[in-house]
Each structure stands twice: as C-alpha cells, then as structure tokens.
C-alpha cells in the first residue's frame, strides 16, 4: 500500500514513560494531546482520546492534581489479521497540576467525537481581582 498525498502537521503519539510503579494492565498507555485555555472564570481542557467509552473515563481531582484516565476496551476484529499498523491502541493517562483553586462542585466534563472537554471553574477566592492603579 503506497502513499500519495499528505498534509497537516502531526506529532507522534507519546507513550507514557515507565515510572517507578508498574501498570497492572498489559496494554500500552498513551499521553493524550491536550489544549489548555485559561479565562478569568475557568480552565478549559480539551483532550484527544479517541475510541473510549464515556463510562470508562475517570477524572479525579485530588488537592490540586487533576488526573485523567481512559481505559480502552478494544477487541481485535474477529477473522481479520492486521495487515498494516500505523497507530497503537491503549489506555490514556495524563495528570496536570493546577495552580488555582477549583470549584470542585461545578466541574463539567463531556465526551464527544473522541474528544474529552473539561471545564474547571475557578473557586471564588482564586478569581483574579483587578485593582485599578490611580495616577498620583
């Protein structure tokens, strides 16, 4: 199978580095690519996690560490053999350390088209208070 045309810049998928602890699941684990936007009111996180079931995505916020886990339930199609493989399927895991306090009650997470969208509203006390400086 040959290639003719290609566009769009893509980064290789990153596999999670072996850390001191070992994973119990015997499948690869990837770091999902993310976009992070901060506004005055909230943090908006967008993560690419294709092929997940929304019930198999765990989001935990402990102190100020946000951890996103996605567990793959991929099954090899029966009767088929893999002729060419350009990507691998596995779990997803990524953690972020948040600098501001988050209003934990109002975190909003949606999973659509393989993209996880998280909106983390800042806690009232963390919202930036602007102080006007008067000219002397």
């Amino acid at each position: 199978m040959t290639e003719k045309k290609q566009a769009m810049e893509v980064k290789e998928q990153e596999q999670v580095e072996m850390e001191s602890s070992e994973r119990t699941r015997d499948i690869p684990c990837f770091v999902p690519r993310a976009d992070i936007i901060e506004t005055e009111e909230d943090y908006q996180l967008t993560l690419d996690m294709p092929g997940m079931d929304e019930n198999r995505i765990d989001i935990t916020l402990e102190k100020n560490t946000l951890t996103i886990n996605g567990y793959s339930e991929f099954e090899r199609p029966e009767g088929y053999s893999l002729a060419a493989a350009e990507y691998r399927i596995g779990d997803y895991e990524r953690s972020f350390r948040l600098t501001d306090k988050i209003d934990q009650e109002n975190i909003d997470a949606t999973y659509q088209d393989g993209v996880l969208q998280l909106v983390l509203p800042k806690a009232e006390e963390a919202k930036a208070r602007k102080i006007k400086v008067k000219a002397g």
Binding site: E3, Q6, A7, K11, I36
Partner: peptide
Amino acid sequence: NGQVHRHERSHGKFTRNI
C-alpha cells in the same frame, strides 16, 4: 479573554490516499 497555555492538538485540512 482566553489565554492559551497549551496547544498540542493539531488542526486543519488533511488528505490521505492509499
């Protein structure tokens, strides 16, 4: 008023032919 901290997800047009 958004500020972008990370932008890792690529976007745009793509074409692939096999």
